[in-house]
Amino acid sequence: MRSFLYQRATDPGMAVQALSAAAAANNPLTQAAAQPLAGGTTLIDLMKLDVMRPAAIVDINPLAQGWSGIETGGEKLRLGALAKMSDVAAHADIQRHYPVIANSLRLAASAQLRNMATLGGNVMQRTRCSYFRDISYQNCNKRIPGSGCAAMDGVNRMHAVLGTSDQCIATYPGDFAQALIALDATVEITGKSGTRSMPFAQLHKAPGNTPDIETTLQPGELISAFSIRGRWPRSVYLKARDRQSYEFALSSAAIALDVQDGVIRDARVALGGVATVPWRAREAEALLKGRKFDNGLAQRAADAAFADAKGRQHNSFKISLGKRLVARALQQASTMEV
């Protein structure tokens, strides 16, 4: 960890100001000289590991009063960026109307971490690639652009099979983002010129040739809220992992279905643990829509979801695991009592 300036935000305007002032010349955001601090469970870790080296930190927790709401009235859900993972997971309306959200949060990290961590920080968490997190490795395009990728032919069991490039195969590790992307969430962003909204699906960027650029947020911009239209009681989040709790996904599936008279009207399929960004499997959704559910259909949808997957030495198993998990999640969603 290096010495840094610590500032507490007094209001959103001040936070944005402080972040933009220090970070003007610093792109991409992930390397920015000024970083917002929420729960700190990613940021402080990476600072101790010397992977992130911000010169200034703007603590946005004082904004919690305006930014941590959980609004579930009517047909719209609005979640403040500073809401804690644990509060959202435990919220009765979320459990009832959005089980995929509640479970994606409940199955993440540990109780202690969920009490600390915020939704905004959660979607912005960085990859767990061991070569990224250990600065003694010289080859990591995400950390040092152009330096190569140690994981490509190294230990890559946890790495991605979808959305990879020849520059980076790091997995996007979070769970909650899959629920957001599946439910077509909107992300509300507060910046210098006020507040703007965009589809959550546009937040993360696949590595391509610039794995160091992970999101479309600009320095000085903050996530202030997420919102979702409609309710999704028929939704599930399944997560496969080596141990029963407290582990990132080897593969996960966020599924939401709208079934009427036995016909799938709308289907949402998102994948975690297998892709470089929160991953929406639109091919699978297309197959499901307008059809009656059966196990064969679930299987075809799962195959479609992984049609473009590319495995490497230790992670090829994720392709077949991911398919089985998607098929199982579809079965569960289709038979849910709602």
């Binding site: 767990r128 061991s130 190294g154 230990v155 080596d242 141990r243 029963q244 709790s245 990132f248």
Partner: peptide, 22 residues
């Protein structure tokens, strides 16, 4: 890491030990 003879998962997030739920 076979190429570099280095330990890769040298932390408690990646070197798995059971949690209570296990």
């Amino acid at each position: 890491d076979q190429r570099t003879a280095r330990y890769v998962n040298d932390n408690f997030a990646d070197y798995l030990v059971p949690v209570n739920a296990d």
